[in-house]
Design a binder for these strands. Structure first.
Lengths: 346, 346
DNA sequence: ATCGTTAAGGAAAACGATTTCCATTAGCTT
DNA sequence: AAGCTAATGGAAATCGTTTTCCTTAACGAT
């Protein structure tokens, strides 16, 4: 069905040279080629509209030019931005980025790694924290070892239980920053809405929140810490729980924006005004945070940048370049909008 | 650097057979293989943990197992969902999905097609409507022809200026549905906020809106049609324009959700209550639509489904399967939330 | 005993590139 | 004139598979 495409031999014939010479022209090889011959070959390439077959090149070079990315949910703008950042860099070096969306499904995750192995991916990026299931960890660890022993780079983003190089996103710092901001505005009665226990992200942010309070010797009250799941509905549930059980609260930090939005929604629904009655902040700066009413104060995770840096790291490592930024760090920033009321100016 | 990986020859040696036989076992070939031999080969495969090299297979089969997807913006949940749907199907058949994020940049778009050609992609999906730039159209058309003559499938999603098979998303129907809903609730003074003129989507939805009004012989007033750009800020601008220039409006349909959210935001900001003072609807049902206060009534584009159907179409076409749904149709649905007030019960 | 058929397996070519040798020529040096 | 080097080009092996022929052996039919 598929037509035989134009090969280096066709070019060679047309230019009246051997395939060897064509290859040398193609790769700017050190082996000298007469400039006249070179011109003839180039002309033939152009006339035939020849493009070297990557599969053949990959086979002989033992390079697939494939970089795999495993994400939980591509619809999460968080991951999408990262992939975009990576792709921006990687495409320049003619690498292919191959995405697997696993929906936190263990089997899909394993299948993804399996395929990446079969396709001899040169690098694999594991994003989105940890699944703690024992069986999964063992199988996955096996695959990872194999990939590594095949010479693939395996890179983790945020905490992973696997023994691989990981790039830190600054989750703990993010939580500390946003909490400090609240403290600086005079808030002392601050609730915290946690993420799902299974994720590394959850733990990291929770650490950051605690550090901020501890640094000012503000006690952490168990009742002010409520469980969440990183979803909008989870935020609403948490807000109801807070409203039922607690009085005297002046602010709440939700450990991600979706939940913060849910909290704001529920508060408004119960007749509270934001930020006048209660301040709310999140982490992540997702698009919807800007659309909220009032717009949500949050921490921007420059996730596109992170993607770019990951891309650069991979390209450099794959290319065995000498020196480069081996452990990229992203710059977090506070996005101050209108969901926080200052308690100072009273 | 990269280690030579285990090949079919290693397996053959270990099992005491020829590579031919190993290949036959691997592919369940019609050529008979003694069951005892077969067992030996399988054992060797397992012991060596052998996985056939896709590059080599692709080279000889003239198959890359690569499907390219070109999107404008992966962070747009719209595209992300589609990709997820495609991937869900495609992964089962061991195809690789290769995403290019072009940010509506002509050069990036061309570069993407270029790479896909070099990598011998078996199929290419072009999403996200049309860029009308003349130069771009010509170059792109050339690439597309080439891909096709190489035997690749090229598929468009929504209108394209290229002569390729396209899958319709139901944009016009979506606009008609949401407008009809407003009409059924008794609204007659309805404003419409358009998208960027350059996109096919814009035109299709605009058609749908007109059809709905025309069908009921309701005149379309020029002043009620305002320009937009599919962004949140664009929605806010449009809302201000509407507020300045027009009185007597009871509803506005924004041609996508982002703008609808912007409109709602600005109205609230100007002291209007939604839906009591003004009803607002959108198209798309993006995640943020649910988070809005009040939650936005809109049309859900079952875009994940569309992705699944595209995936199935591609797999079937690539596999030359006999009969399948050649022109998938997605099911639109009205998501009735709280941003519309009924004028009937007065 | 010979023939035909089928089962079973292997050798070698092929896919489209790259790379390692080797051959030829020209230009200098002495 | 002999010898050396550098420039230029090609032949053939190679990467890891699949596939097209071939060969051999076994077995039943005649």
């Amino acid at each position: 069905m598929t037509v035989r495409s134009i090969s280096i031999k066709d070019v060679a014939r047309r230019a009246g040279v051997s395939p060897t010479t064509v290859s040398r022209v193609l790769n700017n090889s050190a082996h000298p080629v007469n400039s006249k011959t070179r011109r003839r070959v180039k002309a033939a390439i152009a006339e035939l509209n020849f493009h070297p077959n990557r599969l053949a090149q990959g086979l002989i070079n033992n390079k697939s030019h494939l970089i795999g990315v495993i994400v939980h949910d591509l619809s999460d703008p968080y991951f999408a931005e990262m992939v975009k950042g990576m792709e921006r860099v990687i495409i320049k070096y003619d690498y292919i980025v191959n995405i697997y969306n696993t929906s936190r499904d263990v089997d899909k995750e394993l299948k993804a790694v399996d395929l990446l192995r079969a396709n001899r991916a040169e690098a694999v990026v594991l994003t989105g924290g940890t699944l703690l299931d024992q069986h999964y960890r063992e199988e996955m660890a096996g695959y990872i070892k194999e990939l590594q022993s095949n010479g693939s780079i395996v890179l983790g983003v945020t905490a992973h239980p696997f023994n691989i190089k990981s790039i830190e996103l600054g989750n703990s710092l993010a939580a500390r920053l946003i909490t400090n901001y609240l403290l600086e505005q005079g808030h002392r009665a601050i609730a915290y809405i946690n993420g799902p226990a299974i994720l590394g992200t959850t733990n990291e942010r929770w650490q950051g929140f605690q550090e901020a309070l501890l640094a000012r010797k503000i006690p952490i009250r168990d009742k002010w810490i409520v469980a969440g799941d990183f979803s909008f509905e989870g935020g609403r549930r948490a807000a109801r729980q807070l409203l039922d059980e607690i009085t005297g609260l002046t602010a709440v930090v939700a450990s991600n924006d979706e939940m913060a939005l849910g909290v704001m929604w529920e508060f408004k629904n119960q007749g509270l005004a934001i930020p006048d009655d209660l301040s709310v902040v999140g982490i992540g700066n997702i698009p919807a945070a800007k659309y909220a009413y009032p717009p949500l104060t949050t921490i921007a995770l420059p996730i596109f940048d992170l993607g770019v840096q990951i891309g650069e790291y991979l390209i450099n490592t794959l290319g065995d370049k000498g020196s480069f930024n081996d452990q990229p760090e992203v710059q977090l920033s506070l996005v101050e909008r209108d969901s926080v009321r200052s308690l100072l100016e009273v």
